[in-house]
Amino acid sequence: MWRKISLLILFLATILLWIDVFTYQGYLESQVHLPSKLILLGVFALGALTRRKTSSSALIISILILALYCLIVVIEGSTAQGYVFAHLRLRPESMFVATLATLFALATLATSHLSNYLFYVVISFYLVRLMPIVITQSSVTLREVVRAPFASYDQKMALTWGDFYTHMQEIQDTTNEDSVVTIPSDVKKYPLDGNAFLVRYFVYPRTVVVEDTP
């Protein structure tokens, strides 16, 4: 009986954590005066006590939830901030804790052994924390390639370094190879133009000289 009650509490707590996702980050804390991370810790602890193998499909559901979470984070990362909220009324920034809690709760249904439960929990944390980063990086890379698949070296460098690269190209185009290029000494004020090593890469074989600037 107590196990059923614990499971009920566990799933209620998980649902509670989703409130932040549909409202705003911190809403739950303002209402119940408990930080989300503390509730997550409670879900984890309760899960460790109430674990039991009831459903083999819990693992598949977990993978689907993880995939959905990654998808939402990637959409948010590769569009303007607030895009997901504007279209789906979800707050991606609050989803980390809620998704983790859901995966923890599902882990209680996937295994009866404590060691396996702990393994699921740690792997869930690992994947929820790192998978979106890798997928977002992939989408950023692919987006750049798709935008300009046949871009020249200059175009690719201009994408990374912007006006600084254009400026360096101007120097190359308008000066002789034996010219002396003077750059400002204040690296804090001019982090790019004031960096002798960086400028030299672009203007070589021209000599780079650092000159005191007022």
């Binding site: 992939s138 890379t141 692919l142 750049e144 390639v145 698949p149 070296y153 690719k156 460098m157 990374t160 370094w161 960096n195 090593f197 960086l198 030299r200 890469y201 070589y204």
Partner: peptide, 23 residues
Amino acid sequence: LVVMINGLWGVVSTWDALTLYDF
């Protein structure tokens, strides 16, 4: 595959790589 695509498309563009390794 993503890593490979970047390997074929990308250029050396990060700070230390330009100032030291690639220079």
